[in-house]
């Protein structure tokens, strides 16, 4: 992975940090950030929410999937300053009053992970998928979950978990 910050060829004055507000898991966070900080790094390094994972940092794995204003996106390819004012939900914000979200419970019921590195992204993605309401069949779920890679290959159990959460099995 290349280093995260370098000086451009010609000098430019270092931009001021930009004040932004995010509502993360229902709580308002006021931050001052450099424009180049990704939403992923903001969650992990500035808000200490390390449930969201960095796999590739290039949109190729889905480990960083979170919900922004209810839609699933890759937080590694988003600048936090672009999302000023948005509502962000991470895996830490899914359980309510100590009760796991049905998708989280289904992942446990179906043993839908091995190492667990992709899991928070898979779960957030599945929550987004169910909200979209476009997937019915197993093929459609697989296709619309293809943005989440599982290197352990837990796919059959992930599918079963999502079907359970959708009210199928």
């Amino acid at each position: 992975m290349p280093p995260t910050s370098r000086t451009p060829e010609t000098e430019i004055s270092l931009p001021d940090k930009i004040p932004i507000t995010l509502t993360v898991n229902g709580r308002e966070a006021r931050l001052k950030l450099s424009p180049w900080v990704s939403l992923l790094d903001t969650l992990r390094d500035h808000l200490n929410l390390t449930g969201t994972k960095k796999g590739c940092d290039h949109g190729q794995c889905g480990a960083c999937t979170v919900l922004v204003d209810g839609r699933r996106i890759n937080s590694c390819l988003t600048l936090a300053v672009m999302k000023d004012g948005a509502k962000v939900t991470t895996v830490e914000g899914l359980a309510k009053d100590g009760v796991l979200h049905p998708v989280q419970q289904a992942f446990i019921d179906h043993d839908a992970f091995q190492c667990g590195y992709c899991t928070s992204g898979q779960i957030c993605s599945a929550v987004g998928l169910i909200a979209e309401g476009k997937a019915q069949s197993a093929d459609e779920i697989r296709e619309l979950m293809s943005g989440n890679i599982c290197r352990c290959g837990a796919y059959p159990n992930i599918l079963a978990a999502i079907q359970q959460a959708m009210g199928g099995a």
């Binding site: 949109g59 889905g62 699933r72 890759n74 390819l77 993605s125 998928l129 979209e132 619309l144 943005g147």
Partner: peptide, 9 residues
């Protein structure tokens, strides 16, 4: 093309 997360963005 891409994935649903990317298409959302």
């Amino acid at each position: 093309g891409a994935s649903q997360q990317l298409r959302n963005m």
